[in-house]
């Protein structure tokens, strides 16, 4: 995943996500350390068999949202109670019901922007970023498992790919 330079990868391509799932399971069983798995669409159950940690984006989202809530509500309170108290329509300075809509919108705005930016940052994605591509068909209909050659030796990898029914095996330096 990380953009470390000069990693030599050996990767196999599968034609179907169910083959891929079976292959990932058997790699886990054989204790072959997977460098990464690439798929054209989110494969249901893949994160479970890869034993990926659950994403913590929602926690970040909650924190961003809470910041938005506080910013909006305390901001309006400060402005209308302390900085420039004004009576509108006979309502009290601190007219809580009237603050709710903006508070809600700011909560959503902060949470959405915060989470999206976090997502791209932690995933190393963004405009102008050139991530190495193993194969052009990965975004079409091929499912790919990659091993780092410095961790898994080529022989093991090749026999693994053969046993699990990979349709192609290639190597690439990234």
């Amino acid at each position: 995943m990380a953009n470390t330079q000069n990693t030599e990868l050996i990767f196999g391509l599968y034609d179907d996500e169910e083959d891929l799932l079976r292959a990932v399971k058997s790699a886990k069983k054989d204790h072959l350390e997977i460098y990464d798995v690439y798929t054209p669409f989110p494969v249901h159950g893949l994160d479970e068999v890869m034993e990926l940690e659950e994403s913590r984006l929602h926690i970040a989202g909650f924190v961003y949202g809470a910041i938005g809530t506080l910013t909006a509500f305390l901001g309006m309170t400060w402005i209308f109670v302390k900085d420039w108290p004004t009576i509108f329509g006979g309502k009290p300075y601190w007219s809580v019901p009237a603050f709710i809509p903006i508070t809600f919108e700011m909560t959503v705005l902060f949470a959405a922007i915060g989470m999206t930016v976090t997502f791209y940052l932690v995933s190393g994605l963004g405009p102008g970023i050139k991530n190495p591509q193993l194969d052009d068909r990965i975004t079409d209909d091929k499912f790919c498992i990659a091993f780092d050659k410095s961790i898994v030796n080529s022989g093991d990898a090749e026999s693994f790919f053969k046993n699990t029914g990979a349709s192609e095996v290639n190597s690439k330096n990234i």
Binding site: G89, P97, I100
Partner: peptide, 12 residues
């Protein structure tokens, strides 16, 4: 709840 309350509170 909020829609009903707020509108009635606001229009007074």
């Amino acid at each position: 709840w909020f829609s009903q309350f707020m509108l009635i509170w606001y229009a007074n």
